[in-house]
Design a protein around this nucleic acid. Structure first.
Length: 328
DNA sequence: AAGACGAAAGTGGTTGA
DNA sequence: TCAACAACTTTCGTCTT
């Protein structure tokens, strides 16, 4: 019945939840792309993600995004917590600021005397001024808010935004913005981040929510990708499949089939030189027919952002070369 | 009437001299 | 820098369901 007991209970519950989430996070790591083994370990010393079975290095610049939970004494061990929000690259000062709050209350909830209020007021004023002090910071703050706006409009996850923000910061460091519009670089960074994360958006989609046209974004993207040495493979059509299928309301079965078709096509070099969206659209079209969830060419073309003619060309090519019979 | 098909002409981007 | 070129789009008429 004492209050303290109940508080302890609640805290224990919370801790259990945290642990559960941690385990989930551990298990969420993919399988090895080389041998398919799910036994992947993190080599913290080298910062690598390594397959335990074949030794394949999946990611060589692995960064531990979790809080650093080294405990130096038993109290810390129990608490396992740190103060403040996690560091983020999507806020111009990396979210590190502690701000002086506007309520004129002190730590104990008592109101502050009139004389001290004046001082606090001045402190707040200067904090505001220092936070965004010069032109560079103002630009960065603007760029990052723009980035956030676009990412929200495109429905991109937080991880992609972080990546994009990191790319943008690198671009600034290397003085790549000079002579280019901030918006253009932001859009390009976002595009690059999407591709890196394997959730590609087309240039058209990005351009739709940006004030810069597609051509400009493409140019800027190529430029910064070259200058920053971003290793970006050409996009696989398979990366588009989940999103297009979802937009068409197709089942997982169709998705699987479509990806299967794309894999076969890639083996026979049917995808090189072709627009990935077109190939993805054709594969989905075929898969939808094979699985009895037929969508019209028009519908598929709509979500994939290509024309029906392209789908026709691609799907005839695929059907012929892969020997897939289509009964209508 | 809607969807699928194919031909023909036009467009934007890459490549090689 | 320019022409050649392949992929892709637009447009339109015809055929199928």
């Amino acid at each position: 019945m004492p209050e303290v007991e109940r508080v302890r209970e609640v805290e224990k519950e919370k801790e259990k939840e945290v642990e559960k989430k941690e385990i989930e996070r551990e298990e969420a790591i993919e399988v090895c792309p080389e041998c398919g083994s799910p036994r992947i370990i993190r080599d913290y010393k080298r910062g690598e993600l390594v397959c335990q079975d074949c030794g394949y290095v999946i990611e060589d610049r692995y960064i531990d995004a979790g809080p650093e939970w080294r405990a130096f004494d038993s109290e810390q061990k129990e608490k396992r917590s740190r103060v403040g929000a996690p560091v983020t690259y999507t806020i111009h000062d990396k979210g590190l600021s502690t701000i002086i709050d506007w309520s004129n209350k002190d730590f104990y909830g008592k109101s502050i005397s009139i004389r001290n209020r004046a001082q606090l007021f001045r402190l707040r004023k200067w904090q505001r001024r220092i936070r965004i002090s010069n032109a560079t910071e103002r630009n960065l703050a603007f760029a990052l808010s723009e980035l956030d706006r676009m990412a929200s409009a495109l429905g991109l996850p937080k991880s992609v935004r972080e990546t994009a923000a990191v790319i943008y910061r690198k671009a600034i460091e290397k003085n790549l913005i000079r002579g280019r519009s901030i918006e253009g670089v932001v859009a390009a960074a976002l595009y690059a981040a999407c591709r890196q994360a394997g959730v590609p958006r087309t240039l058209d989609e990005i351009a739709q929510y940006s004030r810069v046209d597609r051509k400009e974004i493409g140019r800027t993207y190529r430029f910064i990708a070259r200058e920053l040495g971003l290793k970006l493979m050409p996009t696989s059509p398979a990366d588009y499949v989940p999103r297009f299928c979802a937009a068409l309301g197709l089942s997982g079965e169709v998705q699987k089939k479509a990806i299967e078709i794309i894999k076969k096509a890639e083996e026979r070099e049917l995808t090189s030189g072709r627009g990935p969206t077109g190939v993805a659209a054709a594969a989905i079209y075929i898969a939808s027919i094979l699985c009895g969830e037929r969508r019209t060419q028009r519908e598929v073309a709509e979500v994939a952002g290509v024309t029906e003619v392209t789908i026709r060309n691609r799907y005839k090519e695929l059907a012929e070369k892969l020997g897939i019979e289509i009964i209508l």
